[in-house]
């Protein structure tokens, strides 16, 4: 295995906290949520595994050093484990789901397109949306997922996929959100907390800015 410190991008002299921060930063980047439905999800999973192992190795080594090298430490330090992508197969489109899972997107789409329009149910739209999403046709995918949710509002699987896309559209995964004030803004909270700080400072020096507190 390669140098665990290099994997996390930290120096071997880094403190435990620095290592933890570096690990968290990377875990956030490789988090499966960022890749659900993406054709490169498996590669992100590998990256996640790499940093988990690196983190566990470093922590174990350090524990061992601290304990004078006696204990063999049980490795599992709260690293993130990939829950995988759950495909339920008790449905009418088991074959399509299998093809999607195998990455045979074109074959899956061919079967889906062969379904006559009157037989296209919520699951059909969900799977069509999944296939389109993998192909990069994000807007058509969004429309299909919306249709699936509309046809079967109670289905958690469709809803989860839809929520993911909604969040991505609103800039939760990067991009620009016109409704959020960025860094240089000053909100009501900022004003209040600044005033409270000023009050505390005054009180230290014997004065008082806000008499009631």
């Amino acid at each position: 295995m390669s140098d665990p410190y290099k994997v996390l991008g930290v120096s071997p002299n880094a403190t435990d906290d620095e290592i933890k921060n570096a690990y968290r930063e990377l875990a956030k980047k490789y988090h499966p949520d960022n890749y659900s439905g993406s054709p490169i999800a498996d590669l992100a999973g590998e990256k996640m595994k790499e940093i988990n192992e690196a983190y566990d190795t470093i922590i174990a080594q350090r524990k061992q050093q601290k304990n004078g090298g006696y204990s063999s430490y049980n490795t599992s330090n709260g690293g993130y484990t990939n829950p995988g992508y759950a495909y339920y197969s008790n449905t009418g489109f088991g074959d399509v789901r299998n093809l999607i899972m195998l990455g045979r997107i074109a074959d899956a789409e061919q079967i889906l397109d062969g379904v006559p329009p009157e037989n296209r149910n919520a699951e059909w739209y969900f799977l069509k949306g999944t296939v389109l999403y993998k192909r990069g046709w994000l807007e058509e995918a969004y429309n299909c997922l919306a249709r699936a949710c509309q046809m079967d509002p109670g289905n958690g699987e469709y809803r989860a996929a839809m929520n993911q896309v909604m969040n991505q559209r609103n800039g939760a995964y990067g991009g620009y959100n016109p409704n959020v004030t960025y860094a240089n803004g000053c909100s009501g909270c900022d004003i209040c907390s600044s005033l409270l700080c000023a009050d505390c400072c005054c009180e230290c020096m014997g004065g008082d800015l806000i008499p009631c507190c």
């Binding site: 980047k29 960022n34 490169i40 992100a44 896309v165 995964y173 990067g174 959100n177």
Partner: peptide, 15 residues
């Protein structure tokens, strides 16, 4: 639409 596209781009860049 751009944000959705960018989320995929960033996901690729991150790995």
């Amino acid at each position: 639409v751009l944000n959705l596209t960018l989320s995929q781009l960033i996901a690729a860049l991150n790995i």
